[in-house]
């Protein structure tokens, strides 16, 4: 069983929901990544997503775009990201990124390198299962979980494909749109999670627009976990402060984790 599946099983046994936190690799500085991930673990995160910066992130709103750009401006390279990530073993790591940097050498090579760095799963924002045949194959042989996104606009056929091709968990996108904080009702997400549950026994986690404990609480009433990205990326930009904000970060995570408990 993969570490991701294992984590969800433990959570399920303890009747708990998952807090999944996203950070961009290289923003703040890449050398701080491990320290940040350790702080997230200490505050109670269950899984972490590490964003591979890309110059043209079409699925991302202003916060993650800016963060990605800052990382690139600092000269962050994929090889360095993988090396840094390999230092962190406390929680399962899901790599999140875009197709182009991943196919630059070859998908197979990327999957192998990621796995060797201790990465447990990957999300490719601009890849859907129907275009993902090769990716699924090479990820399987590298023992990397493939997490695909389900959207409110997905047809039932497409949802079935997403469920069939996903390992670890299914990522339900809360609304039509890009990543980023937004005041929004959760009924669309709840409906989508309901549709997904009819098709799979995999855990279903919801992301896009979750930024405060109240959002976490609302979403955890119907999903198996939440993914928080933009808000954390903004928080780190404003407060990490070369590590001086570490204790505050642990508190911030703790408040989010508490909210998963209702």
């Amino acid at each position: 069983m993969s570490r991701i599946a294992d984590t969800f099983q433990h959570l399920r046994e303890g009747n708990e929901k998952a807090l999944i936190l996203f950070v961009t690799a290289g923003d703040p500085a890449l050398k701080d990544l491990t320290a940040i991930l350790e702080a997230l673990a200490e505050g109670g995160a269950d899984l972490v997503e590490v964003g591979l910066p890309f110059s043209d992130p079409i699925a991302d709103g202003p916060s993650i775009q800016a963060s990605s750009q800052r990382a690139l401006d600092r000269g962050v390279k994929i090889a360095d990201v993988l090396e840094e990530v390999s230092e962190f073993a406390r929680l399962p790591v899901v790599m999140m990124g875009y197709m182009n940097p991943m196919i630059r050498s070859s998908l197979a090579e990327f999957a192998q390198r990621a796995r060797r760095a201790g990465v447990d799963g990957a999300i490719v924002c601009d890849l859907t299962p129907d275009e993902g045949t090769e990716w699924i194959q090479v990820a399987r042989s590298a023992e990397l979980d493939t997490v695909f996104l389900a959207a409110p606009t997905s047809t039932d056929d497409r949802l079935a494909q997403v469920c069939h091709s996903s390992r670890g968990f299914v990522y339900a996108v809360s609304r039509t749109g890009v990543t980023g904080s937004k005041d929004q009702p959760w009924d669309e997400a709840e409906k989508l999670v309901g549709r997904i549950r009819k098709l799979t026994a995999l855990p279903v986690c919801v992301g896009f627009g979750i930024s405060i404990p109240a959002d976490v609480k609302a979403v955890c009433s119907f999903a198996d976990g939440v993914i928080v990205g933009s808000r954390l990326v903004e928080w780190l930009w404003e407060n990490w402060n070369g590590g001086k904000g570490r204790d505050k970060l642990v508190d911030w995570v703790r408040a989010m984790k508490d909210a998963t408990r209702g």
């Binding site: 079409i58 699925a59 197709m99 196919i103 998908l107 924002c125 601009d126 890849l127 859907t128 129907d130 275009e131 045949t133 090769e134 695909f148 996104l149 389900a150 959207a151 409110p152 606009t153 997905s154 047809t155 497409r158 997403v162 996108v173 039509t176 749109g177």
Partner: peptide, 24 residues
Amino acid sequence: MNQEPQPGRFGQFGGRYVPETLVP
């Protein structure tokens, strides 16, 4: 990328690499 020929491809080129939300 050794994909089978399919609609929307010109040889190996083309395809549809976008977020799921847009595919439908």
